[in-house]
Simulated scan of single mutants.
Amino acid sequence: MNNFSIISSLLDNDFYKFTMQNAVIKLFPLAKAKYEFINRGQHSFPKNFDKILKENLNKMAYLKLSNEERIFLEKNCPYLDSSYLDFLNKYQYNPKEVNIFQRGENIQMHIEGLWSRTILWEVPLMAIISELYYKLTKRQKISEKKITSITKEKLNKYKKLQVKIGEFGTRRRFSYKVHKLVLKTLTEEGTPFFMGSSNVHLSHIFSKKPIGTQGHEWVMFHAAKYGFRIADRIAMENWFNIYKGNLGIALSDTYTSPIFFKNFNKQFSNIFKGIRHDSGDPIFFTKETIKHYKKFKINPIRKKIIFSDNLDPCKVAYISSFCKNKINTCFGIGTNFTNDVGLPSMKIVIKMVKALPEKKWISVVKLSNIKEKSTGEKNMICFAKKILHI
């Protein structure tokens, strides 16, 4: 176990972490952040889990961006400029930013430091926790042959539906090996419907462009700095200023979709290529999105919705049949691709809980379209709801 390293590349992470990191360095270089591990599934962790987890984190300190990886980013992500790639060249994980405690079968974890540095921890940490959990609890998965055939089966369903799909499953994958196997199958068999993966390292291995834009923490930080009412708007404004229309998908549910649509004015509705849906009823959301575009005399068929909320072939069939000829779609499928191995998948998250935009720490919250996906301190959630009249 000790010689085994779960994360073997600095790029074994979701693409949106790098795009956000670039924006943070440019706009908020001195801001700090705190993150916390949330065990939604109440999983019981085996004895000494914390020690083995720390060993894996310590190994991450030696990861460096290789020349070949830099060339891959230059070629496939031209909007990540050379000043950012120079930063990434020098970047190394600092395990001192992560505190882990185990009490009985519970794991507590806090991450704290400059936002521009700590932003990269969340996804690989979750991937490590997931892989170690299955390894140390000696859970037996189905065979690799069966995993490949299940992936092909799903792919055939998506091909029949003629829907575009992406793979978003790094954070809760069964293991790196399974993730790689699934991606190999998707890359070899998925043309022209498979759009790529959010995992930058595996995108490099399989010569695909990585996909993704921004996560909820981008908007959550803006709420801490500028207030809940205008967080969505300023977050979009700043994003556009950095990327000039590239990576143009807006995230719709940090403070519920009705609040997002209030901020998604005519200018943004025109310049952003579409919206990501990550919580709540997808059909209701689609109707609201179409209504919103029509209000500004924008033809919805020129826009798209990226659906990414806990998808499987049944849900995709249901959503895509409703959206057909109304608005374009793409489906980001996570755990259902990378952790469909005959075992229950883990329900874990790591979320930003506090931000220090300037002089003092401010609790941050996310008010999803459904209560279960909301995060943050109860008092702050109440305060945000009051301010936003939710």
Rank of each mutant, 00 (worst) to 15 (best):
S8N: 15
L10S: 01
A23N: 11
A33P: 08
D50F: 14
L57G: 10
A61L: 07
A61T: 02
K64M: 06
S66M: 09
I71G: 11
S83E: 06
D86P: 07
K90P: 04
K90R: 13
I100R: 11
I100E: 04
Q102I: 09
G104E: 04
E112D: 09
G113K: 06
I119E: 07
L120E: 01
M126E: 11
E131N: 06
E131K: 00
L136C: 02
K138S: 13
K141I: 06
S143N: 11
K152C: 07
K159P: 04
Q162N: 05
K164L: 06
R172C: 14
V178R: 06
F194Q: 04
M195V: 15
M195R: 10
S207Y: 11
K209Q: 11
P210Q: 13
H216D: 04
A224K: 05
I230N: 14
I242P: 00
N246Y: 05
L247I: 08
A250K: 09
T256Y: 10
K262P: 10
N265I: 02
F268L: 09
H277M: 04
P282R: 02
K295F: 05
F307A: 05
S308G: 09
S308L: 02
D309C: 13
K315L: 07
A317F: 10
S320N: 03
S321K: 12
S321E: 02
C323Y: 08
K326A: 09
I327P: 05
T329G: 00
F331D: 00
P344M: 05
S345V: 11
S345Y: 12
K347L: 08
I348V: 12
V364T: 05
I370S: 02
K371C: 00
S374N: 00
I387K: 15
H389N: 06
